[in-house]
């Protein structure tokens, strides 16, 4: 067991956990933030994506000890201001992306990160840059929503 200090969505906490446990289970079962999902446990699907010190991480395959003293952002904290949606979330609603919705937190975290790295992605950038899995087939709407989110973000027209 090891004491892990992390700041999740701006809240600093300490957890006494097995240092090899995947970060995902700390987020879900210890910090009780259930928006980050489990899909494969093997860094294949991206359902568990979160940001660790600004990096996009598949938390199912990331031992908690690596997150010690780091800042984690999950879907619940994606929008820094709780009264405002992140442009990604705005676009997601506008385009009506989710079906079952299970994969969507991971996709939104990956998309938000993509926009940090590339504020004006082309369709090809999106197709090659995001390798998450959606089984309901929301693919075309995800692509459309990311293009829209980039516009919203660049025009500063987020509400």
């Amino acid at each position: 067991m090891m004491k892990i200090n992390v700041t999740i969505n701006d809240v600093a906490s300490a957890f006494d956990v097995d240092p090899d446990m995947p970060l995902l289970w700390l987020i879900r079962d210890e910090a009780k933030l259930k928006g980050t999902k489990f899909g494969c446990g093997m860094a294949q699907c991206g359902a568990c994506s979160a940001h660790v010190d600004g990096e996009l991480v598949r938390t199912c395959s990331y031992p908690v000890h690596l997150a010690h003293e780091k800042k984690i952002t999950t879907i619940e904290g994606l929008s820094a201001n709780p009264n405002h949606l992140h442009p990604i979330q705005q676009a997601w609603l506008e385009v009506q992306v989710p079906q079952c919705g299970y994969c969507q937190s991971g996709f939104m975290m990956a998309a938000a990160h993509l926009l940090e790295e590339n504020s004006n992605p082309t369709e090809e950038d999106i197709k090659n840059g995001i390798t998450n899995i959606c089984r309901c087939g929301t693919h075309p709407r995800i692509i459309k929503a990311i293009l829209l989110a980039a516009k919203l973000k660049n025009n500063g027209t987020t509400n």
């Binding site: 980050t36 489990f38 979330q89 609603l93 009506q96 989710p98 969507q104």
Partner: peptide, 27 residues
């Protein structure tokens, strides 16, 4: 019609079976 279940789904707040968490729960 916009889907009524999407606002909670884009906030990560929708509760799926996996999200069940009840007092005293073990794994």
């Amino acid at each position: 019609q916009k889907r009524i279940d999407l606002p909670e789904k884009i906030m990560g707040e929708a509760v799926y079976g996996i999200d069940t968490d009840i007092p005293g729960m073990l794994y």
